[in-house]
Each structure stands twice: as C-alpha cells, then as structure tokens.
Design a protein around this nucleic acid. Sequence first.
DNA 1: AGCAGGTTTAGCG
DNA 2: CGCTAAACCTGCT
Length: 165
Amino acid sequence: MREHAKEPLVLMKRKITRDILFAEPLERYVEVIQQSIVCSIRFLSGKKPMRERKTLPVSFELERYFQGEDVQFSCEVDIAGLTPFQQKVLREVQKIRYGRTITYSGLARTIGSRAFRAVGNALAQNPVPIVIPCHRVVARNGIGGYSGGVDVKARLLDLEHRDCQ
DNA sequence: AGCAGGTTTAGCG
DNA sequence: CGCTAAACCTGCT
C-alpha cells in the first residue's frame, strides 16, 4: 500500500524532555514528553520495571495527583492543531472540577451542540490525559470509553472518588 | 460522498 | 435487564 500523505514539515528541533513515572493507582507507568513549554502524556502498557525519571514540574504534579491530591496543573498544552470543535470540547473539559463527572451528551449541550458522538471523538484527540481530565466524561449509563484503556479510566475515577467521600 | 467513532435512545425478548 | 438497531454530528479518506 502506498502512502502519499503529506507530512507536515516540522523540522524545528527543540529540546525534548522525556520523563517516566510509576502511577500506583494505575499500576502502570506514565510517560511525559515536553518540548519547549508544550507537553504530552501517555500511558505505557509494559509491566517490567523501568527506571523512573522525574525532572519536569508536571511530573511532580502528576505524582501528587496520583497520591489523591486535587492538583492544578501548570503545564501548557498545545491544541492549536486540532479542529475548532475539538478545541472547544477539550477546553470545556478543563473546567470539570476534581471528582466531578459529566456525560458525553451533557458536555455536548454545554457547548451548544447535540453531537455527543463527536464529543467522544474529540476527547480521543486529547494529547494530555489527566491534565485535561477527559476521564471525567462518562457515558449516561456506564463508564464509556477511554483511549488509554477503560481500566485506566476506572482507576482514575476511583482515585478521585475515594478522595471525595 | 462514504464511513466510523471514547454515544444515545427506543424497541423487543 | 440485556441486546439490537437507528439516529445524531464531526472529521478523515
């Protein structure tokens, strides 16, 4: 199969920092990548022990978050590459407070749309899970989906909920 | 245009 | 209650 996809020509090489930290509640490693001021986060599936590396401010914030603390993340996120609709969704998600949840359809309503499916799609584009708490968006009858794995979502919600009680 | 998606709702067993 | 099917809206080929 041939691909003639036009690659965006981003050759600017900035300093890239890559941290690794273990999230107890998730029983999983989390990778934090930051170039310049923008960061991205993803969950690693590998289970074998890795060397942790915590240098970035956001890494320490995440560490506190995983200890059950309501953390205000300071890291700057770049969602300029996303569509206006997707940006709208993610910005709205940032307003959801710790321990609270909203449904896909409810979130769609607050941004003046009925596109609950598109909302889910937009959430899947979130480059920074947890910092933009897309796990707090749940299905009307159930937990809904999660790009990083539904079990991760469940553990995140559990972490926030047990702190709330 | 056509299709699929981190849903939702209704309809039926 | 559990399952299936159609509908709604956006984004990617």
